[in-house]
Design a protein around this nucleic acid. Structure first.
Lengths: 244, 244
DNA sequence: GAAACAGCTTGATCCAGATCAAACCCTCTT
DNA sequence: AAGAGGGTTTGATCTGGATCAAGCTGTTTC
């Protein structure tokens, strides 16, 4: 007896989304979350390899990832580029566009994905009304800044194996938060993309994977990673390489 | 005939601050800027070498730099640290604290400085009232994210000399925006701090300075830098080092 | 199911920047 | 004005990761 319209509505509402504990609605009260249902009324599918947005595109919306996996990257004029992050379900992308009204990076789907479109002007409007939403949005941006500083620390002062260990531990922890196994997962990105993110060449990434496998920390089968010694990985991350 | 009270008020008000074209009030209308005068009612002096805040401190306020120069840095448990930015007059620091209600980096004055204290809850309150202020604050955070991505690109894919050239050009441009010479300035930070920011050792920074001087791009006298060939520096930044 | 291709691994060699070391230059203190 | 100490420069050597090269593995296409 349910009209398709109703079903469609249920499917696109934040209030019934199974990601609401990870995504924008975190911490909002029932009626506040329901107000988001009017904010988020469009979904978009992005096929693997396609861009959700590119550097220079007009900025109008943020995107909450519903299903799938993305990378963001920035590039120089002379062709070099740098992966600035990997984003998974529940994470928000597009914030880079606010400052100039144009996007300042590319967002590329690493698998077939689906995003919720959040018109930015609407978000500003609603967050003027709902203190909790406002604060949560500020937290999301602040978290991104803190995360970026962590990546700078990694790029500026860690050795190759420490970087890869940090990367794996970070992925593991984010999978856990989404209810997936913390020790057994499929990498959605290539060795080259991992290398770009970590400031290493793909061969170095590959060698570090092999080293970790030889040391019994993980097992690697192409993109399938199984972490067998989390504590060991943490130890790799902590060591400075200095002898004191 | 002016009472001292009035003078004091003039001195602490955003509406009469000579940084209002760089700082929080950018783009605000007259009455909106005046509303900021109620937001910013405390100033603080921070002596050279002292911290404005440290990792772990309770977060309550953002700080707008009125006079002086700061660095922010993050550290690992095992003692390594990384400078994440250098901030000058008109720039906002402390945003890193929003996400966890505790600061996530240290902010250290590199010269005797003065900051305006912006109670964060008050800022949220006012930016619910003033759309323009809200949008401007979002832009500040978005700009910080975009800047951080630029630093990741630098750390992940540039050679030592390219990094230093990018750093000098960035400083030059920010000095210009503040009405100082774009080609003649005093570095407030040590070679070691520059190195930490750029992911290099201090000796490498020093050598790159000497190289630029030998090549006639700049002249260096300790912390006094004079850029004699901006275009040349830009060319250094653009070259990949590859032969194709 | 063969061919083509993209991605991955491993080995050999090279080099940019790190590390070690020493001297130098400022600035501040007494 | 001498001395101390932090910061800087420069030289010599070392090394982690880049680069070059070849073979391997899994997946897609026809």
């Amino acid at each position: 007896m349910n009209a398709p319209v109703t079903l469609a509505h249920i499917k696109t509402a934040c209030s019934t989304c199974n990601l609401r504990e990870l995504c924008l609605p975190v911490g909002l009260k029932r009626d506040e979350v329901e107000s988001l249902d009017e904010l988020v009324y469009t979904r978009m599918k992005v096929k693997r390899g396609e861009s959700l947005f590119r550097t220079g595109d007009d900025f109008a919306s943020l995107y909450a990832i519903r299903v799938g996996f993305f990378k963001t990257r920035v590039a120089t004029e002379d062709g070099r580029d740098q992966v600035t992050g990997f984003q998974m379900a529940g994470e928000l992308i597009g914030i880079d566009g606010i400052v100039t009204d144009h996007h300042n990076c590319d967002a590329v789907a690493l698998e077939d994905s689906e995003v919720c479109v959040i018109p930015y002007s609407k978000l500003e409007e609603l967050s003027r009304k709902f203190e909790v939403l406002q604060h949560h949005f500020h937290k999301v941006m602040s978290r991104e800044i803190v995360r970026d500083h962590g990546v700078m620390l990694l790029l500026g002062s860690m050795r190759a194996e420490e970087r890869l260990a940090a990367f794996l531990l970070n992925l593991s922890q984010r999978f856990t938060a989404r209810g997936y196994s913390s020790s057994d997962f499929i990498l959605r990105m290539t060795r080259e993309e991992i290398g770009s993110y970590l400031g290493l060449k793909l061969e170095t990434v590959s060698r570090a994977f092999s080293k970790f496998q030889d040391d019994g920390l993980i097992s690697v089968q192409q993109k399938h990673i199984r972490i067998s010694d989390i504590a060991g990985l943490k130890k790799v991350m902590g060591q400075t390489g200095s002898t004191c």
